[in-house]
Structure formats: C-alpha cells, structure tokens
Design a protein around this nucleic acid. Sequence first.
DNA 1: ATGGCAAATTGAATTTGA
Length: 262
Amino acid sequence: MIIKILSWNVNSIRTRLEQVLNVCQKYKPDIICLQETKVINDSFPQNEFLKLGYSHFYLHGIPSYNGVAIITQQEAESFDILDLSQLNNGRQIGIKIFGIHIHNFYIPSGGDVPDEKINLKFKNKLDFLKALISWSKKITPKNFLICGDFNIAPFEDDVWSHKQLKDVVSHTDIERKYLLKFLEVGNWNDAVRAQINPPENVFTWWSYRSKDFKINNRGRRLDHIWISNDLKKKNYSIKILDYTRTLSRPSDHVPIKIKINL
DNA sequence: ATGGCAAATTGAATTTGA
C-alpha cells in the first residue's frame, strides 16, 4: 500500500485555505500535517476539506498563533497530544494510522537573541528540544514518522550562508547540536536530505522581508520529515513543493511531501 | 539586534514569527 503524507506550515489555515485545498487536489495526500493554523478547533474550516474527501480532523489549536492539525481521509486508530512539557501549546498532535505512528510538531521559533539567559523564547525552544530528546528515548521508533516545522536548519548547506547565519536563531551551534542529538537518540532518518541535496533546492522557508525571494534565494531548510529505520528500508520518494512560494499571498514556508510504499 | 513583511487581535497599534 502506498501512502502520501504532506507537511506544511501554512501561517494561518484560514488565510491559506484555497492554496491548501489546491495542493490537496493536485497531490492527493492521504494525510495532511499543518502547522501554524492560527485557529481554535471550533473555527477550523472543516467543511471545505470534507468536500475533498478529508473527513477526519485531529486538531490542537489555540487562539491567534501556533496550532497544529492532522487531516485524513481514513479514520485514525488513535490520536494523542503528548505531555512534552507545559510548552506543548498548540505545537504537537500525533496519530496512529495504517499501523504507522505520525507526529506533527511545531517547534518554537526561539525569538531574536540566541541566549537562553536573556531570552525566554530561546530557552523555551531548547527546553522543547530537550523534551523531544527524552521522548525519543522512551518510544520504540518502529513504524514511526515525525514531521513539521522544526525551526532549525541543521546542516551548513541548509541555509543560504552558513557564515552569515551561524549566530542567527534557527542555525546557531547549540540549536543544531540539540536537533542532531534528537535525530541521533531516536535513530531517526532525515528523509528529505537523504534524497534531496544541493545544488537542488533544499530550502523550505524564505523570509517575507525579501521583495523577491528568488533573486538572491536566501532560504533555509526549517521543515523536516524524519522516519524510523524500518520505514527507511521501504521505497519512498520526497518532494519539496517550492512552487507555492511563488503564489500570491503565500506562506513563508512551502510543503514537503513523502510517498512511501509500506 | 535590526530589517525589506505578514497575520491575528483589537479597533491604529501591538504581538508573533525566524
């Protein structure tokens, strides 16, 4: 059986609804993992998805910001919101479906200053990563996939300039170290970088502050799909749908997609 | 440590993102 899973930080599901529906019609993912839905559960636009055959909604929204969702055609066997810490505030939702555990994360961005002593947001980011490291040690990573906006570009060539971004939140040494520790203790596999490498585009995010994101291509790879060792052995393919960044009123993130033959 | 922006909330200004 072949399943398709798509992960996208949409920066408001209500603003991006038409674009998300278009991507669903075009690529027909079985499972849609969204981050930054920015909507409470009661206001999630379910009807439009129902028309496309997506009838199950696993939502963890809060007012105004954050918020994650998993949307499926088939009903999940179970779903859960992890007790990662009090910091799991619309930042994680997990399901089990087709025998696969899927967790959708929105790791905190971390604010401006990469110093946990003076910037609480940065401390929260590192604490969230520590919680994910502990969680990875506890679970049995079999038939497991985790995805989402991790807000960290782990490798030097995951950003447009390692030199210029090495002290910028999302690419500092300590964040990269924590993320790679998380990867290592869970025996996770970075499914996207296993298949897509420079000079092909690996970026999934481009700042809104650039007038034309294509001109100097100052992007970062902040969004990820990680899979357990057993899934790594299956046939799978990855696509970064960077065309969505060229649409009018785009999200600053683009979708990433995995097609896996179970 | 700031920016060239965007979205949500509240009601022109602030917070958040990264």
